[in-house]
Write a protein that binds this DNA or RNA. Structure first.
Length: 189
DNA sequence: AATAATAACAACCGCTGTGTC
DNA sequence: GGACACAGCGGTTGTTATTAT
């Protein structure tokens, strides 16, 4: 990491919020042609009014060609639960064991689905130990993490059923990654 | 049909660790 | 060794879609 005197504090009105298709294309195009680099520099060079951090997140979580999204399989669900029981909220570490999945996706998945179901199961069992919360809220916890499977043992097909209504690529208002990448291919030489 | 509640996802924020000057 | 810039991580919040009343 090199330091450059005027590298970060050039405040060129930073854009926030959802990424537009144009921005995505610019980012994909730029990285395809120049590769990943120092993100702040990349953002500026590409002409994006975004922080390097934002560009990095967007690229890693959505635009990378090897990113898989939606439809987490039962195998992946199980793996997530096992790894979470082992490591707690080490999402990036967990993500490394799920090919094509990002830490952000796994984190969201855990919070919105698995955690909820664990809570339900606990309520159903009429217990109040709060094991699952412990496991999810204390990121520093290294051992004695209760295996969620112990407190939460869904029938497997039920478990599958909450894999969520991911939008499929058929919606014409939604541009898929395939669309983006093919556009990118057209744009680049 | 309208509205409220909930779920799911995308993105940002703050912090920490690391490398360079 | 301190300051700085950056990458990466985990937590949190905002937005949109879906479901229930």
């Amino acid at each position: 990491m090199k330091k450059s005197p005027s590298s970060s504090s050039h405040d060129v009105q930073v854009r926030k919020g959802p990424w537009t298709m144009e921005e995505d294309l610019i980012l994909i195009n730029y990285i395809t042609n120049h590769g990943e680099g120092v993100w702040n520099t990349l953002a500026r060079s590409a002409g994006l009014k975004r922080t390097g951090k934002s560009c990095r997140l967007r690229w890693l979580n959505y635009l990378r060609p090897d990113v898989r999204r939606g439809n987490i399989t039962p195998e992946e669900q199980l793996l997530i639960m096992e790894l979470h029981a082992k490591w707690g909220n080490r999402w990036s570490k967990i993500a490394k064991h799920l090919r094509g999945r990002t830490d952000n996706e796994i984190k969201n998945y855990w919070r919105t689905r698995i955690q909820k179901h664990i809570k339900h199961a606990e309520n159903f069992n009429g217990k109040s130990s709060g094991h699952a919360d412990q496991a999810t809220t204390s990121s520093t916890q290294t051992c004695n993490v209760i295996n969620p499977m112990e407190t939460y043992s869904p029938p497997y097909d039920n478990f599958q059923s909450f894999s969520g209504p991911y939008p499929t690529e058929t919606n014409e208002n939604v541009w898929s990654m395939e669309d983006l990448w093919s556009m990118q291919l057209l744009n680049s030489d």
